[in-house]
Design a protein around this nucleic acid. Structure first.
Lengths: 205, 205
DNA sequence: CCTGATCCTGACCGTTTGGTCAATATTCCG
DNA sequence: CGGAATATTGACCAAACGGTCAGGATCAGG
């Protein structure tokens, strides 16, 4: 616990904590938790190592803060599924949003990828709690649409998994995709038309 | 270079190198390259640390050996795409094979996941060379089927990417999937029916 | 301008880790 | 059996790393 509740948080604190988290995101997403060093983070943040540890008690705490802060943003598009909207448009909008996040926030995607690959040691409570709730809720919305015959019947959970898998793949495995596709193509633009076709086919009633 | 070409390779060498690679696979796939220690590998292999380094010059070499050894096996199912076979059956068989690999060889999947997340520092030549060739060849087979009207037209490269993404997701993000789905379900069995439905829909002409 | 709180750093510490080496044990084979 | 090749290990080393700390710089506000 560093700033539990009633923290005034000066401008300097605000600025430096932000810088540190920004640098840490770069470092952790490039090398994983163990691969990143506090020195790296400090350099990326433009601070000295002891100064970094002045704002965060430990490397672990930086990591945990980063994960919990970003998880909200990361799951936000799924929360936006509107039960009142047009089912297919809603799903396709979700997919587009996730693909844009892979393009605009690949570091965040990789950060979570590393964490989950490792067995999610810092996220177990969140995974079994909040995440599961959100996914179950969204799955229920999807299932509702399917029952009304407005979407084809498929397993809603696996539908969500498949969207995660496909969209995040373009951020997490970027190195592989670029190696295979060469430099002249725009993977994410192509991915969007591919994914739209894929899920339209799958879900159109 | 440890055993470049004319290596007699005694039984003890064979056995211990195998043990080391086996232990290293467990260690690397659980914690990534930097997260795994030679001591861990040695313990998993039932050897002492110096003894491990007697068989492999460095941690790096163990890792590289592991990657190059397993890459062949990893890509094998894609090579089995038979241009003379029934297109849809061929693709579905490939998907099933990949899903079985996620079930039976999750460590291998995670090993590659870590490596590519990191930007594939040990695989750059292979990715741009052999892998690209195999993918392009397979994409050509798929494109051929599409031109004959035996498969629906989609981008063959992204088709392959999507299959990789979906199938490997179940191994790499196992922690997340189990957290969301709970313990009473069998993710990979369900994934098989989901994936078959998905790609049948997408590809049936 | 003074003073207390906040901010920052160089020097340092203990541990972990990749890797070495000399010495010993074991195996192989004539 | 005997000696050379192979295998194994405890002890050790240097570098990297996470983290501490005492002291100095800077800032806010009365």
């Amino acid at each position: 616990m560093t700033e539990p509740s009633s923290a005034p948080m000066t401008r300097i604190q605000q600025k430096n904590r932000d810088r540190i988290l920004e640098g840490a995101l770069t470092a952790f997403s490039a090398n994983g938790f163990r691969g990143a060093t506090i020195d790296q983070i400090a350099r990326a943040a433009g601070l000295s190592k002891p100064n970094v540890l002045y704002y965060f008690a430990s490397k672990d705490e930086i990591h945990k803060t980063l994960l919990t802060t970003l998880l909200e943003m990361w799951l936000d598009p799924l929360r936006r599924l509107d039960p009142k909207g047009d089912p297919l448009s809603e799903v396709l909008a979700y997919i587009r949003a996730k693909l844009m996040m892979s393009r605009d926030f690949p570091r965040e995607s990789r950060l979570f990828a590393y964490e989950i690959l490792q067995g999610a040691p810092h996220l177990t409570e969140v995974l079994g709690g909040g995440l599961r709730q959100i996914v179950d809720d969204s799955a229920a919305i999807l299932a509702g649409w399917m029952e009304q015959g407005r979407l084809r019947r498929v397993d809603p959970h696996h539908l969500i998994f498949s969207i995660w898998a496909l969209t995040q793949h373009y951020a997490d495995f970027d190195a592989q995709i670029r190696a295979v596709l060469g430099t002249s193509r725009d993977p994410l633009a192509e991915a969007e038309t591919f994914a739209e076709d894929l899920y339209r086919r799958l879900l159109a009633p």
